[in-house]
Amino acid sequence: MNINLTLIGQSVAFVVFVWFCMKFVWPPIVSALNERKTKIADGLAAAEEGQRAKAQAQEQVTQVTNEAKEQAQEIIRRAEKREAEMVEEAKGTARNEGDRILGAARGEIEKEANMAREALRAQVAALSVAGAAKILEQEVDEGAHAKMLDNLIEQL
């Protein structure tokens, strides 16, 4: 355990090691650490910003959805109203058409009936004349009785 030249040797080694450490070891590690610190801080800030943006977007989504729902409701309401209107309209049209067809049919029937009545009247007149001729067994002057027969037809 003598103090000797080793002391100087150790001092020199110490100086060399410290110099090397200061030059080549410490700066890159510390700069990497600091860089990482900044990066992490930036990342955290960005994450926070993202969170905020997400919340904002969520709000917007809710708003848009609500608007869309309202609009849909409105459209449905309008459609229902229009449907009711159309049904009413169709009902009116159908009724009118029916009435029209009914009227036309009635007119036709009337016309047919009148025609039948006319024919019947003429036949009754002819039959009456024939019957009367048979009863009287005499020649009836058609000309002389025509007026009377017309009156008879009128009364039928």
Binding site: L7, I8, G9, Q10, S11
Partner: peptide
């Protein structure tokens, strides 16, 4: 010697 060497530095 070693410890004195460092302490000397």
């Amino acid at each position: 010697n070693a410890t004195f060497g460092m302490a000397l530095g």
